[in-house]
Structure formats: structure tokens, C-alpha cells
Design a protein around this nucleic acid. Structure first.
Lengths: 103, 103
DNA sequence: ATCATTGTTCGAATATAATAGAACTATAGA
DNA sequence: TCTATAGTTCTATTATATTCGAACAATGAT
């Protein structure tokens, strides 16, 4: 059961996080993951875009260190790496999530 | 004495802020402005890049609503719009500044 | 008036990113 | 084994950003 590679938290750069969150689609993915508070499959995050586009955005979220994806069967379960990011960059991600909630 | 136009705070979009902060040069400008805690001219923010490049980055910071530029004589005085941004998006900018300070 | 200073704007080159269809991979189930 | 499902990867297209030299504009000083 091959798993996807993620950056370790010390490899996560602030500008990568900012970049990942600068796209409306990705910001929405992050908001949905935060709101759900549980593992979500890519399919559950339906933003009306083709699979390949969504996959692209997930890849960027992963490489920025924001999202962790674990393969379970045919599904890819995604979670926010909230605690880790908060530890390294306190307040940023939680504030962004709060900002997206008020919409 | 013509002044530069800025977005009003209600026109400031979260993704614009994220986008503006995703560039290392711009992040550094923001960090320097925050550290200085006073109006800085573009010239005082010397990041070893040509004027036109810096001007480009300032333009994006302005249009994102992060920086306010007031013309005084031949100089353009820049400040962070920290209080306004904090009011609209609490915690984000201050957390980013804190993150840049630990480097 | 001329000149120096500060920064913007223009323009063109280069680089990076977004989008999405099609082919592919991996697993699960019949 | 064949088929369906979930996502990824490949590839090409199009759109957006970055960079920076050169020309320009506005002010202040001589």
C-alpha cells in the first residue's frame, strides 16, 4: 500500500503556505477540511471541477505541507496538518480558517 | 500633490493578501515595514533589486491593501495597514509578521 | 531654467501557474 | 479475470507573474 510523500514540518516554508492559500479553490479546500474536522476524500470535496484540476490543487496543498493524504483502499483521505503548522507558524492557519468561516 | 489610490478595507480580499505575501521579496518588505514601525521610503527598503522591480512589488502590496503609500515631496512614504487588516482579518497579518521575525 | 532625486510606467523577455482531456495506476468487488 | 471506482500523471494550451532596462513624471534645489 504505497503512500504519498509529504514534507516534514521543518521543510515547510512560509511562502509555500502563502502561495498555496492564495488560490480561491485551494482556500476553499482548506476551509472545507477545517470545517469538516475529519478525513475527507477528494470526491467529498466537490467544487465542480475536473478531477485532474482538483488533483493538481491537492498536490500543491500537500507539497506546501498544509494537507496530509493517506491512501485507504481506492480512496485518498485528506486532513489538514493544522496542529503541526500552528506549532511552527502560530496563528496563521487558524486565522485564515477563521477568515474563511465568516463567509 | 497627486496621491496614489488604494483599495478601501472592505475591498481587500483574503486571496489578494495571501498572494501578495507569497513572494519572498514582498514578504521581506512587509517584515521590514513591520519591524521599522514607521514610514519608510522605497529607497530605505534596499533589497538589492532594480527600482522597477521594487516598484512592481510595492504596487502589488498596495493593491492587495497591505501597504499604504503617501507621497511627500519626491519620496513615497510606505506604511503597513496593519490595524485595518487586523480588524478585517484578525490574526493573519500579525501572525505572518511574527513568523518572519523568527528568522 | 536646469539638474538631481525618487519612484512610476512601459515594453519585452522569460518563467511559472491554471486548466482540463486522455491515458494510466491501484485497489476493491463481482 | 473483468469491471468499476478514485485519483494521479501526462501533455498541451492558455493565462498570469516576474524581471529589469529605458523612458518618463513630479518635486526640490541651485
Amino acid at each position: 500500500m504505497r503512500q504519498i510523500k509529504h514534507p516534514t514540518i521543518d521543510q515547510v516554508e512560509l511562502t509555500d503556505i502563502m502561495y498555496a492559500l492564495a488560490d480561491p479553490t485551494r482556500l476553499e479546500i482548506v476551509a472545507l477540511l477545517a470545517k469538516a474536522g475529519r478525513k475527507l476524500t477528494c470526491g467529498e470535496i466537490d467544487l465542480n471541477r475536473p478531477k485532474s484540476s482538483m488533483s493538481h490543487h491537492f498536490k500543491i496543498l500537500r507539497s506546501a505541507g498544509l494537507v496530509e493524504t493517506v491512501i485507504e483502499g481506492t480512496e485518498h483521505m485528506n486532513t489538514l496538518r493544522l496542529e503541526e503548522i500552528e506549532q511552527k507558524y502560530p496563528g496563521i492557519l487558524s486565522a485564515v480558517i477563521k477568515a474563511t468561516a465568516n463567509n
